[in-house]
Amino acid sequence: MKPLRIYSISDQALTIAFSEVISESANQHVLQLHHRLQAAPFPGFIESVPAYSSLTVYFSAQTNKEEVTTQLNKLLTEFTEDETLETGEMRKHIVPVCYEGAYGADLQVVASATGLSIQEIIEIHTGMTFRVFMIGFVPGFAYMGILPPELEMPRRQSPRLEVPAGSVAIAGRQTGIYPAAIPGGWHIIGRTPWRLFDKNAEPCSRLCAGDLVQFEAITTEAFEQLS
């Protein structure tokens, strides 16, 4: 896959965009390039940040931007020739979620808007494997997808001032987990006892871009035991 565009977002960062929409194959390319750069960094490389369909490469202020562009173009050329590059370890997580009572605060709203029953929503949400496209927004927040069109919901009209940590939520064709109590505009359908961000863990984010996630419904009692 050839990049659509390479552009600067700062004096020290270039973004390589593969697509303008959410796409698994574009994200796959993003992660391949990400892992390649981690394994064989060019001089001056600081870090790379995967997003849905783009990878942003940060380099030191002393590094010449033209040199970085040349390096990246070289890498991209090799890359298009070899589509079977490593994407790192493929991890799958079974994430326990309690969809009961107050934990699924917006289930009724989602049911009314989509015409699905609460049981059907839970079945869809637990019945498929999601891909973690990227981590961002706040430390440890995983953007996962792609939700089937029947569960597609616009964001809430007014965001909540505080969404409890562990809340599992949906918006658009995405699902995510709030790692900390923060404001949020997604619809809350459940809560996990998992801790998604821990500054003392290695890595600090429980989920990483490229991971696979399946949700598993648990009872309120099980939730409390696991918390």
Partner: peptide, 10 residues
């Protein structure tokens, strides 16, 4: 815009 990386100065 499809969510993508941002940084200081944007």
């Amino acid at each position: 815009l499809l969510s993508t990386a941002v940084t200081a100065g944007i």
